[in-house]
Amino acid sequence: MNRIFQRPASLLDRPTHFCPGCTHGIAHRLIAEAIDELGIRERTIGIPGVGCCVFLYHYFPIDVLEAPHGRAPACATGMKRAQPDKIIFAYQGDGDMAAIGTSEVIHAANRGENVTVFYINNSVYGMTGGQMAPTTLLGQQTTTSPYGRDFKSEGYPIRMAEMLATLEGVCYSTRVALHTPRHVNQARKAVIKALEMQNAEMGFSVVEMLSTCNTNWRVTPLEAIDMIENEMIPYYPLGVFKERTGKDFL
């Protein structure tokens, strides 16, 4: 029989620890497919942040370094400088990257470190129980914004892909979503492009992925998909915010 769909070689056959309905697993799959497609598994090293993504090594048959919360871009910097011929990616949640780790990601991007960050934005601190993050939407109720996020006290949700796109060192900054097949397909292309650009030594690439966290949003998986479409995308528009075409550095 001719198989037309199968598990990517760069993804291990393991039961997942992610909650049913969570799109972290889709992100994993897209990255594994891209690694396969580019044939880079044996020279790829992954650096998960701390959060639901921390068990990266559980799923990927690649070398993995576990970074402190928010510091993956700094670890990736040291690693890439020590091994410029390797493909280094960080995989960070929105708490990890957009809260505790803003300094590290901004400066790695600004130096144009030739690494890739996959940024999973599910608008809450998932692993610790769904507390409010800088990315939490206005009015969104979480365990630490029980009355809904109020801009007067907590400010507005932070748009990382747009912000990072302003930095000269960034070669690629895009936002995609993981809630429908069409969006997953777009996301797949973005993941491949980011890794290709790293392979071509073009600088810092970041792919922000709008992701569900139905458990902590306290909704069903289907409702979570609607929330991405109707609540997240209107505030976090999808698109490419920066894309260099060649080694067009200043």
Binding site: L65, A67, R71, C75, A76, G78, S103, E104, H107
Partner: peptide, 24 residues
């Protein structure tokens, strides 16, 4: 060799971690 004027001591030590994890 490589010298990076890091953005903070937090970044410095985590860069050390990345390079050291590479075996350097």
């Amino acid at each position: 060799g490589v010298f990076i004027p890091a953005e903070s001591e937090i970044a410095s030590i985590n860069m050390v971690m990345g390079a050291a994890a590479s075996g350097k």
